[in-house]
């Protein structure tokens, strides 16, 4: 494995983020930097990536592990290129989220929590994403897909597969439905 290091551009971004906080409070940059790192290194945070972020902020590695494992958006294991996160909390459930999840399982041939054999999709159920008025919905990377129907899911799967981009929270990969 190659050495974990940000590209010069990303490093510059990281330095700008660190400057948002007062002297001596650079640890505040941890959450944003983990997002940046996850986007840079294949959509997940390996121990090496976390150690690297720790070195950028001059904090102990355990401080990074503690934080990364607390928040749900950080993947501590590799995920498929497109991480499909379907909301399943009350308001979405009331509008048929279960059907959407079931449809995904059928279409992709995987269960919730699994990744397709080609490494393209990981299916996950998540809790309320603040989109209950446009339920059912899912998030893939930075994008919200709302008012879902099984037909829309079919279209989405096709488009995502065709675009072959890795979804990241940092950048929109919006596929028109």
């Amino acid at each position: 494995m190659s050495k974990v290091e940000f590209s010069p551009d990303t490093l510059a971004l990281a330095q700008r983020i660190i400057k948002r906080y007062p002297e001596g409070r650079q640890k505040s940059a941890l959450l944003p930097l983990l997002h940046v790192a996850q986007a840079e290194f294949d959509g997940w945070l390996s121990p090496e990536t976390m150690d690297y972020v720790a070195s950028l902020l001059n904090i102990k590695p355990i401080e990074v592990y503690e934080v990364a494992s607390f928040y749900t958006m950080y993947n501590l294991k590799p995920v498929g290129k497109c991480l499909i996160e379907v909301c399943q909390t009350g308001p979405c459930w009331l509008r048929g989220a279960d059907d959407i999840v079931e449809h995904f399982e059928k279409k992709l041939g995987i269960k919730v929590g699994e990744t397709t054999a080609d490494g393209m999709f990981t299916l996950k159920t998540v809790e309320c994403l603040g989109s209950c008025g446009t339920a059912p919905m899912l998030q893939c990377g930075a994008d919200y897909y709302e008012n879902l129907t099984t037909e829309k899911v079919d279209t989405l799967i096709e488009k995502l597969r065709a675009s072959d981009n890795r979804s990241t929270y940092m950048k929109s990969n919006m596929q028109e439905l």
Binding site: P47, K60, I62, E63, Y65, E66, S69, F70
Partner: peptide, 20 residues
Amino acid sequence: QERVHGVLNRGDASEISTYI
């Protein structure tokens, strides 16, 4: 001086660990 263990994960999945 150097804490290498801590609390990982959250809720009732929290655990004390050195991670690696």
